[in-house]
Design a protein around this nucleic acid. Structure first.
Lengths: 314, 314
DNA sequence: CACACTTACGATATTCGTAAGGATT
DNA sequence: AATCCTTACGAATATCGTAAGTGTG
């Protein structure tokens, strides 16, 4: 039961031409090989398909029966190939990714827009959400891959660092620490601290530091960084954010001072996916574009200059 | 684009087992050949279909995409084979034949019933009609083949004689000619002649004879032989019919006398089909059964004994 | 006798199995 | 060390093309 699609094509060609020589030409083979092919087909299906006297070729009743079935089959096979090749060529496909809000606000959408322009047939989806949810989306396969900050058990995933993204203290320009090159969390003793979402990745990371320092928790728990920025600009306190989110605060002219505690200083953005599961061709394409287009954020650079990530559209 | 169905089966087997060794066993091939087959498939479709680390095998996104398409395709291929094999094995099919009323009345239905018992899946159709219509049905392919008497241009068809079926004069037992061994048409001078359908095959054949003899045409033109039989039994005239239709008259105890004019004496029943077009497997089966089961009508046999055609059911 | 399909036969390509290699647990 | 997939290589099979054969108009 192992009929080559090429044989079906030959059958249909002959059914159409009713002439071995012409059909053979159409199949790009010698007339003799074509004759053998038809004979082989007939022996495989177990019935004569053509009546041929040297001067005329016509379908037997069983041949007539096969025509519509073979036609449908040939079309389905072609469609299957088309579909796979379209995916291989990135003309079709879906990519879903997840990322924290900082990445999702500015840089990532720009990369995704570039990708969309280059591969208009691929459907993109972005989940901007918090760390634990991101991990869940990767685990259950809802997204092809994700961007995230440092996570607890990186061995569960395939992880690779995209770029460094250290944390900064955000405070008013006239704040005593604003002129420092860098600070340590310990220096925040006595400050009012404004938390963003409690339980977030950042909160989990800051907590051990802050709890050791005599900091005054303002009790705020905010969803939007623009709210935090407004509060800080009006002297209500300070906060710490990753470099990638600084733009929310610079809009209001706030100062940003590098935090030099090791884990906050060395943090960065990572790309992660399920272990042992390769990416779809489409997802791999987006991944490569993300890796090629990541913003340059050298550790020593002052935050005011950070928007110069190069754009590489094709 | 020439993917062997066997490759698709291999793909589905591996997709299901997620284990090369087991899937290879299921496909009855060595694990190595199976590995090569999968690699070949991947190169043909142009994308990796499986993620394999020595300890686990899983589908890539493109592999997942292929599963439903391959499943459908495999099923369609199997159905195609099933259909063709069912026809080759005479488990399915249609046979339409045409025959003149004489053959259709008794002998042919018996053969068809035998065929139906042996091949219950094959749909049978019988057109009982007159000669010209029979030829038309064969010509345009409405019927697979037909039974008919001598025709004008036999070279138009593939014709082969089934059996002799000479003509008989039908008259009352007390008719002067009833005791003859055989007669010639010329002896019917002065008789009242009862025609069946004018323009029929029989009429066309009798006309040259009757027109040369001083016969009184009764003017009747009948559709049913039983009517003719009634008329003859009541002394209204005589007629001539083929042996196969005699049963209509013997029921009323009428006499039948062989007509010895050459063309009426030597007539018979023929099987005919389109030239150069082979019969379907099913039709060929019926044809063979017809040829094997034809009634024995030796020329010298008296009509009263003619119902002894043997039945060959299996 | 010319045309169109089939058969014969040697060359090439594909597919398969045994055996060795490599990687992961 | 055991297990599972891949690679290497020779053997078997399938397919193809050239050329000769066959039958029909």
């Amino acid at each position: 039961m192992n009929i080559a699609p090429r044989l079906l094509q030959s059958f249909l060609a002959l059914a159409h031409c009713r002439n071995f020589t012409e059909a053979a030409t159409r199949m790009h083979m010698s007339q003799s090989a074509f004759s053998q092919a038809i004979a082989r087909l007939e022996s495989q299906v177990g019935v004569k398909l053509f009546d041929r006297s040297t001067r005329s070729v016509s379908l037997t009743p069983e041949g007539k029966l096969l025509v519509p079935m073979a036609t449908r089959l040939e079309r389905d096979i072609a469609l299957m190939f088309q579909e796979l090749h379209d995916h291989a060529d990135r003309k079709k496909g879906k990519v879903a990714i997840a990322a924290p809000p900082g990445a999702s606000a500015d840089w990532l959408p720009r990369v995704m827009a570039n990708f969309q322009r280059r591969h208009p047939g691929i459907q993109l989806q972005l989940h901007d959400t918090y760390s634990d949810r991101i991990l869940e989306l990767v685990r259950n396969g809802t997204v092809d891959f994700a961007l995230n900050r440092e996570i607890e058990r990186p061995e569960e995933f395939d992880v690779c660092k995209l770029f460094d993204d250290p944390h900064y203290l955000v405070c008013p320009q006239d704040h005593p620490l604003a002129k420092e090159k860098s600070i340590r969390v310990a220096q925040l003793a006595g400050e009012n601290y404004i938390h963003l979402l409690r339980g977030s990745n950042l909160w989990q990371r800051l907590y051990p530091h802050l709890s050791r320092v005599a900091i005054r928790d303002t009790g705020f728990e905010l969803n939007n960084m623009s709210t935090a920025a407004g509060l800080i600009a009006n002297g209500m306190g300070v906060t710490i954010v990753a470099g990638q989110s600084l733009f929310n605060y610079q809009r209001l002219g706030l100062a940003a001072v590098l935090v030099s505690d090791a884990d906050l200083r060395n943090s960065g953005l990572y790309l992660l996916k399920r272990r042992g599961h390769s990416l779809s061709v489409a997802a791999q394409g987006l991944r490569e574009m993300i890796e090629a287009d990541k913003p340059v954020l050298p550790a020593t650079q002052r935050p005011a200059a950070r928007r110069q990530g190069r754009t590489r559209a094709g």
